[in-house]
Computed example of a mutant assay.
Amino acid sequence: MRSSRRHPLLVPALLCAFAALGARPTDATDTGAGSGAGAEVIRLYEDAAAATRRYEEGRRAAEAQRARARRYERLLDRQREETAVINEDLGRIARAQYRGGGLPLTARMLLADDPDELMRGQRAVRQADLAVDRAIGRSRRAEARLAADEARAEAAWRGLEQRNTELAALKQDIARRLAAARSRLQGEAAASVAAGTCPGAVRPDRPETRFSRPWVAPVETYDLSASFGSGGTRWAHRHTGQDFAVPVGTPVRSAGAGRVVRVSCGGAFGIQVVVQHPDGYCTQYAHLSAVTVDPGDRVGTGEWVGQSGDTGNSTGPHLHFEVRVTPEPGSALDPVPWLARRGVSL
């Protein structure tokens, strides 16, 4: 059964890990061809990270603009309702004035039974008229301001949408060029293995990574593919590890603290690293495209030991991860429950 698990990918980790691919191998027959490809991968990852940040910032800003535009529209709707009520009141006042305004005010005063009452009523009508006029003026000014605010919000939203469209196109172009650079890096790794000139360890500068737990998954973002014990034509007997489907160049990290006891290339596992842990168990990381450690190195939990690849007996980019009782093949355990007992759920 195929399962997957996603984890946030640390962009700085990727940048430093790919920097390792740009360093020169220790073998004297190396021509240095990997340096240019590694540098290109680093630059592309920097561009992709920057474009992604800008895209996400623009997307959040566009959402905020849309929310403001919706608020403006709701305010405008309320103002229109209030204005309609005021206009209706004004219409009633005007109709009442029309019905009672057939005679001049002087004549109505002479004919009135109570001229003082008539004058008080007339003053009340004038005050009501003034109040209505002021309310209408305020409403119209508020509506004009809100309409202007809404227009500005809509213009800003359109600008952000255009920017995000451009950034999405930029990300696609970067992804295309990154895929091409990865392909070249894998080709160089495969050529090194075929020629028997395995690249030595490279030491990328990278920020120190500390984990609060003693064990971690060997890669951060992955799909689980071939599992322990599964059958297939690629293996002489049964599959001896757990495969993690990841792109070429993905940083591979030590599942726990320990000492590097083997770094080698060739054969079914291609480029591989084996780490022995204090409890006696060993973990293997195979089908790599490059390594960042040498035999005898001490590594901490989560420290990089190499980059994933497609070397050896492999039908696609992935990390082959084993847990062994000894450093040698033939003593493998199912790594999924082994990691689960140590608090790592795949």
Rank of each mutant, 00 (worst) to 15 (best):
R5G: 09
L9W: 07
V11Y: 11
L14Y: 06
C16G: 14
A17N: 12
G22C: 06
T26L: 15
D27I: 04
T29Y: 04
G34Q: 05
G34E: 06
S35Q: 13
G36W: 03
G38A: 05
V41N: 02
I42Q: 02
I42G: 00
R43C: 02
Y45F: 06
D47S: 04
A51V: 01
T52E: 06
Y55F: 14
R59W: 12
A61N: 10
R66L: 13
R68N: 12
R68H: 07
R70E: 15
R71I: 03
E81V: 06
E81L: 15
E81A: 14
E88G: 01
L90E: 01
L90K: 07
G91M: 03
R95F: 07
G100C: 07
P104K: 04
T106W: 15
A107R: 12
M109D: 00
D113I: 03
R123W: 09
A124L: 14
R126V: 09
D129W: 00
A144H: 08
A144S: 07
R145H: 10
A148T: 02
E150V: 01
E161M: 13
T165D: 15
A168P: 12
L170K: 14
K171F: 09
A175T: 02
R177H: 07
A181Y: 00
Q186N: 13
Q186P: 08
A190W: 03
S192C: 07
A195T: 01
G196S: 03
P199W: 01
A201C: 02
A201R: 00
V202R: 11
S212D: 14
D223N: 10
A226H: 06
F228Y: 15
S230H: 03
G231Q: 12
W235Q: 11
W235C: 12
A236G: 13
A236P: 07
H237S: 12
G241A: 12
G241P: 06
Q242K: 04
V246C: 15
A255T: 08
V261A: 09
R262K: 11
R262D: 15
G267I: 05
G270T: 01
I271P: 00
Q272Y: 10
Q272S: 08
D279P: 14
A286P: 05
H287A: 11
T292K: 03
T292D: 06
V293A: 12
R298T: 03
V299M: 10
V299I: 08
W304K: 00
G312C: 14
G316E: 09
P327H: 02
G330N: 01
P335V: 00
V336I: 11
W338P: 03
L339R: 04
A340C: 08
A340Q: 15
